[in-house]
Design a protein around this nucleic acid. Structure first.
Length: 882
RNA sequence: GGGCGCAUAGCUCAGCGGUAGAGCACUACGUUGACAUCGUAGUGGUCGUAGGUUCGAUCCCUGCUGCGCCCACCA
C-alpha cells in the first residue's frame, strides 16, 4: 500500500533511464533529438531545465510511439569561458600571471574538464533527462578535432575561409578578437570634449572637434566636415595640427560628418573606430595604430603617454589639453559603449590579422532552406529574426587569440606563406612542393577557432562525420533541435549553413524555440538580482516530476515562462492527486488485468470514462505532434482531476466499497454485483494505466513507480483507435446525471441548504429517457447531491437542467420574489441570445455564405434555447401561482 | 532609425471568424476510509484603443497607445 503522502525522494533515485535511452530499434523509423551541448563549465539552471525538459518529453513520446530515438548528449568546450575560469583558479592558487605556458594551461584545462565536466550531466540525470549518456561526445574529443579540422580545410580549399587584416572588436582583457554577437552595449556616463585643432598656417584660426575619446587623437588621420556644411567650407583642404603633437592632418570633406552632432567637425581615427575605418579607406588615409593589444597606448604616441592604459591616458590627455588651452568645453553625456560579454570590459576596435568565413555565401542556401519550408521554426515568427540576420550577415571572424579550442590548421613558412592542411605532415608536403626544398621550417598558427565554428558542425560530427557512418545516413536531417531564441544566430544559423555545406542537406526540419525563464515579476533571473531559482533545489523539495510537469504546463511556445515556487507546488499537488488515485485503486483491488476487454464493459459509468480516456489520448497525441507540451499537461490534468476523480470515482465508490448493495440500491446497475464490481475494478485500473502512459513523457519517475504499483512494467503508448466503441448512449446518460447533480447542488447552495441535508426532488420531463435515467441512478443522485427522489409536498422550486425540469422541495427556504427576479433575468438573457441567433438565420447573407454546419448549429441552438426558455417560463408561471 | 513580439478575470496565461476559458487568488459552505497537497458551489471580463473587411470580429486588416525584445547608429 502506498503512503498517504507522496515523497518523490523515496523513489526517484531508484530509477535510471539509461537502458531505454540506449535501446536501438533498427527497423523503426529514426528520430533524433539534438541536445544543445552545455558548456563544460556549466551547472544546471532554470533555462537548461526548461529546454531539456521539453526535449526529453519529445524524446520519450517518440520512443513510446515506436520510433528509433537517438537523444544525443554532449559537452561544449566553450573556449573563452573555460579558459578564463581555469586561469582564474590558477591565479588564485598562486600561479603567477605570465608564467603560464600554452602547454601548462591546456593540461590544466583538460584536468578541469575531466574532473568537473560531468557536473551538469549528473544534474541532468536528477531531472530525468533520458539522453543516451553512453554516447556522450565532447566538442574537442579526438574525432571532433579531426572533423573540425577537415571542415576548416574544405572551406579553405573552396575559398570560403580566408585570412585577412581587418578591423575587429578586440577584448583587451582577454587579448582576443570577439564575435560581433558576443558584444553587449552598456549605457555609461561619459563626456563629450570639444577640442581645438589649430590650423597649421599659424593664423591662430582653429576648428573645434567633439570627441568622447580624446586619447585616440594621436591616431587621427584627418578632420572631416560635411560637404554641405557652410560653416567649414572654407577650411576644407587646409591642414590642422593634431593637438599635443606636431603632426599635420588635412581637413577633408566627407558625408560621414554630421553637422547636427558635436561641432559638426569630426576627427577621423581610421585604426580605432569602425566608421572612421571606412572613411579612412574611402579617403586613402593612413591607418595609425596607437594601441597595444592589452589596451595601452603604444610607441606611436608621444613618449609621455606611452604604455599608459587607455583610460589613464584619456585623463592625461584631457589634462594636457586643458593646460594648453585647447579644450573649448566639456559636455556630460550618457553614451552606449560596447562591452565584452565574457570579460565585461569596454572593447576596442583594432586592426588585426584574423581568419574569416565567407558567411554571405554560406547564407544563401541557408536562407533558402527556411524560405522554402525545408526547415520550420516553431513559432514561425522567429524565422524573421533568422532572415534579418542572415541577409545582412558580415564576414564571420573565426579566429580567437586564446589557447583553449580547436587550433587553426594553418602553418606559415619562413616568409609568411600559408599552408593549410589537416595535419602538419600535409602542410609540410605542400610547403616542400612550394619551396622546392626537402625541409622547411613551419610554424603553426597560434590561434584557435571560435567555439561556434565547431558547434555549427555538431549535428553531423556527433553522427561520425566525416566518416559516412550508418548513423549519419540514418539520423541526419531527421532531428529536432530545441533551444532558446538567444542562440538562433550563434548556433541555429551556423548549423544550417555548415550542414548544407558539408552534408548537402539540411540537418533538421524543425527548430523549436522556447522562451526565457523569468521570475514571477517577469524579470530575468540573475545572480546579482538574487532572484535565481535553482532547479535542483526545486527537484529536491518537490520532486523532479513536479518541476518537469510545471515547466511543461507553462511552456507555451513563444512565451517566456514566469516561474515561482507556488506554480511548482501546484504541479506537485496534481501529482499527489494522481498518487492518491493509485492508492485508491490499491485499496479497492483495482490492478492490471490483461484479460480485460473494454468492449465488453456493460456499465454506463465505465463506458463513459473509457470514452473520456479515448478523447484524452487523441488530444494528447494531437498536441504532442505540434510540440504543445503545455496543452498535453493540461489535457491530462483535467481528465484526471475533473472527469476521473470528481465524477467517475465518486460514481463508482459504492460499488467498490460496499460489501453488498440492497436490491433497491442496485437498480442503477445492470449486472449482478460480483460481475459489476469486477468490471468496475478492471475499468478503473485500465483508465489509470492509460493516464500513466500518457503522462510518462512528462513525469517519468512517478509514472514508473505507479505503474509498478498497478501491476504493469511496460509503458507502451495507448492506441486510441482500439477504443473506437459506440458508447454514445452511456455518455448521454452520464452527462444527464452529471448535469442533474450539479444543478441540484448549485440550487441548494443558492438556497443556503447544506449539501448533506436531504431534500426531496421529483423529475418531470417530457423526455421519458431523462426521467428513467434519473430514476435509474437515484442512489447516486441521493448520495452525491443529497436529493431523494419521491413525492413532494412542501413548497417546491422547479429547476431546469439541460434536458429536464426538476422540482425540489425546499421548505420555506425560498424567497419567491428573488427567485422570480433571478429566473426572469435568466429568461431575458436566453431570449436575447436566441433572438440574435434568429436574426442571423433570417439573414439571407448568413444562410448563403455561412457553411451548412454553422447554419445547422444555429438552428439547433435556437431550438434548444426555445425549449429552455419555455421551461423557465413554465417555472415562472408556476411560481406566480404560489 | 529598422524590425519582432505582447495587450483576454485581481494575478499568470490558454483560446478563437459564430455560446468567454483554465490555474492561482477571493467568497460561502463542507470534510474521519484515495487525497486538507481535499471537496462543493460561487464572485469576477463591452478580450488595450479608434477605424476597416465581413451576414457576423476578442480573433483578419490599418492607425494609435502602453510594455518587452532584437538589429543598426551614437564625434
Amino acid at each position: 500500500m502506498l503512503d498517504r503522502i507522496f515523497n518523490p525522494e523515496s523513489f526517484e533515485k531508484n530509477f535510471s533511464f539509461e537502458i531505454e535511452a540506449s535501446l536501438r530499434k533498427p527497423d523503426a523509423e529514426p528520430f533524433m533529438v539534438l541536445l544543445p551541448p552545455p558548456n563544460v563549465t556549466g551547472s544546471l539552471h532554470m533555462g537548461h531545465a526548461l529546454c531539456y525538459t521539453i526535449q526529453d518529453i519529445i524524446a520519450r513520446y517518440k520512443r513510446l510511439k515506436g520510433y528509433d530515438v537517438l537523444f544525443q548528449p554532449g559537452l561544449d568546450h566553450a573556449g573563452i569561458i573555460t579558459q578564463l575560469l581555469v586561469e582564474k583558479n590558477l591565479y588564485e592558487n598562486g600561479v603567477e600571471k605570465g608564467s603560464l605556458t600554452r602547454e601548462i594551461l591546456l593540461k590544466e584545462i583538460w584536468f578541469f574538464k575531466e574532473n568537473s565536466g560531468s557536473t551538469i550531466l549528473d544534474q541532468m540525470k536528477v531531472l530525468g533527462i533520458s539522453c543516451d549518456f553512453a554516447r556522450l561526445r565532447f566538442t574537442m574529443d579526438d574525432e571532433g578535432k579531426k572533423a573540425i579540422t577537415k571542415m576548416f580545410v574544405d572551406l579553405f580549399n573552396d575559398g570560403l575561409i580566408y585570412r585577412g587584416r581587418r578591423m575587429v572588436s578586440w577584448d583587451p582583457l582577454i587579448g582576443s578578437a570577439v564575435s560581433d554577437l558576443e558584444i553587449s552595449e552598456k549605457e555609461v556616463d561619459g563626456n563629450l570634449w570639444y577640442i581645438k585643432y589649430m590650423l597649421a598656417d599659424s593664423s591662430g584660426e582653429y576648428i573645434t572637434v567633439a570627441t568622447t575619446r580624446p586619447e585616440t587623437l594621436f591616431g587621427d588621420a584627418a578632420v572631416a566636415v560635411h560637404p554641405d556644411d557652410e560653416r567649414y567650407r572654407h577650411l576644407v583642404g587646409k591642414e590642422v595640427l593634431v593637438p599635443l603633437t606636431d603632426r599635420k592632418i588635412r581637413i577633408i570633406s566627407d558625408k560621414y560628418a554630421n553637422p547636427e552632432k558635436g561641432s559638426g567637425a569630426v576627427k577621423i581615427t581610421p585604426a580605432h573606430d569602425f566608421n572612421d575605418y571606412e572613411v579612412g579607406i574611402r579617403n586613402r588615409l593612413p591607418m595609425i595604430e596607437i594601441m597595444n593589444f592589452n589596451g595601452e597606448l603604444n610607441e606611436n604616441v608621444p613618449e609621455i603617454f606611452q604604455f599608459t592604459d587607455r583610460f589613464a591616458a584619456r585623463e592625461k590627455v584631457v589634462d594636457f589639453l586643458n593646460k594648453k588651452e585647447l579644450l573649448e568645453k566639456v559636455e556630460k553625456i550618457r553614451q552606449k559603449i560596447p562591452f565584452g560579454d565574457r570579460s565585461d570590459v569596454p572593447l576596442e576596435p583594432m586592426i588585426t590579422h584574423q581568419w574569416f568565413v565567407n558567411a554571405e555565401k554560406l547564407a544563401i542556401p541557408a536562407i533558402e532552406a527556411v524560405e522554402t519550408g525545408k526547415i520550420k521554426f516553431i513559432p514561425k515568427h522567429w524565422e524573421n529574426l533568422y532572415f534579418e540576420w542572415l541577409k545582412n550577415v558580415r564576414p564571420w571572424c573565426i579566429s580567437r587569440q586564446i589557447w583553449w579550442g580547436h587550433r587553426i590548421p594553418a602553418w606559415y613558412g619562413p616568409d609568411g606563406q600559408i599552408f593549410v592542411a589537416e595535419t602538419f605532415e600535409g602542410a609540410m608536403e605542400k610547403a616542400v612542393g612550394f619551396y622546392g626544398k626537402n625541409k622547411v621550417e613551419l610554424t603553426q598558427d597560434e590561434d584557435v577557432l571560435d567555439t561556434w565554428f565547431s558547434s555549427g558542425a555538431w549535428p553531423f560530427v556527433v553522427l561520425g562525420w566525416p566518416k559516412q557512418t550508418d548513423e549519419l545516413k540514418r539520423f541526419y536531417s531527421k532531428m529536432i533541435v530545441v533551444t532558446g531564441f538567444d542562440i538562433i544566430f550563434f548556433w541555429i544559423a551556423r548549423m544550417i549553413m555548415m550542414g548544407i555545406y558539408c552534408m548537402k542537406e539540411v540537418p533538421f526540419p524543425d527548430v523549436y524555440i522556447h522562451g526565457l525563464v523569468r521570475d514571477d515579476k517577469g524579470r530575468k533571473m540573475s545572480k546579482s538580482r538574487g532572484n535565481v531559482i535553482n532547479p535542483l533545489t526545486l527537484c529536491k523539495k518537490y520532486g523532479a516530476d513536479a518541476v518537469r510537469y510545471t515547466l511543461a504546463s507553462m511552456a507555451s511556445p513563444g512565451r517566456d515562462v514566469r516561474l515561482n515556487e507556488q506554480s511548482v507546488e501546484n504541479g506537485r499537488n496534481f501529482l499527489t492527486k494522481l498518487w492518491n488515485v493509485v492508492r485508491f485503486a490499491q485499496m479497492n483491488g483495482c490492478v492490471y488485468n490483461k484479460e480485460f476487454n473494454i468492449a465488453k464493459v456493460n456499465n454506463s459509468v465505465a463506458k463513459w470514462i473509457i470514452l473520456c480516456v479515448r478523447q484524452l489520448i487523441i488530444d494528447v497525441e494531437k498536441s504532442m505532434d505540434n510540440y504543445r507540451v503545455d496543452e498535453v499537461a493540461n489535457h491530462i490534468y483535467h481528465c484526471v482531476w475533473d472527469s476521473f476523480c470528481d465524477w467517475y470515482m465518486e460514481f463508482i465508490k459504492p460499488v467498490l466499497q460496499q460489501s453488498a448493495l440492497r436490491d433497491d440500491e442496485r437498480q442503477g446497475y445492470d449486472l449482478p454485483l460480483t460481475i459489476l464490481k469486477k468490471d468496475i475494478r478492471d475499468t478503473t485500473a485500465w483508465a489509470i494505466i492509460q493516464f500513466l502512459r500518457v503522462l510518462y513523457p512528462i513525469c517519468p519517475f512517478i509514472v514508473k513507480k505507479l505503474c509498478g504499483e498497478m501491476g504493469i512494467i511496460n509503458t507502451a503508448w495507448p492506441d486510441a483507435s482500439a477504443i473506437d466503441l459506440d458508447f454514445s448512449e452511456a455518455v448521454r446518460e452520464v452527462e444527464v446525471l452529471k448535469t442533474l447533480i450539479s444543478s441540484v447542488r448549485s440550487m441548494k447552495q443558492y438556497l443556503n441548504i447544506p449539501l448533506n441535508e436531504k431534500i426531496n426532488i421529483r423529475a418531470e420531463s417530457s423526455d421519458k429517457y431523462i426521467e428513467n435515467t434519473i430514476l435509474k441512478h437515484k442512489e447516486t443522485v441521493q448520495r452525491m447531491a443529497g436529493a431523494v427522489l419521491g413525492e413532494i409536498s412542501k413548497q417546491t422550486v422547479p429547476i431546469v437542467i439541460d434536458e429536464a425540469v426538476i422540482h425540489m422541495e425546499v421548505g420555506s427556504k425560498i424567497n419567491i420574489e428573488t427567485e422570480l427576479e433571478r429566473l426572469t433575468k435568466e429568461s431575458d438573457k436566453l431570449n436575447k441570445t436566441r433572438e440574435a441567433a434568429l436574426l442571423r438565420l433570417a439573414n439571407e447573407d448568413f444562410c448563403n455564405k455561412a457553411t451548412d454546419d454553422v447554419v445547422e448549429e444555429h438552428k439547433k441552438r435556437v431550438e434548444t434555447l426555445g425549449e429552455k426558455i419555455q421551461k423557465i417560463d413554465y417555472i415562472i408561471s408556476s411560481l406566480k401561482v404560489v
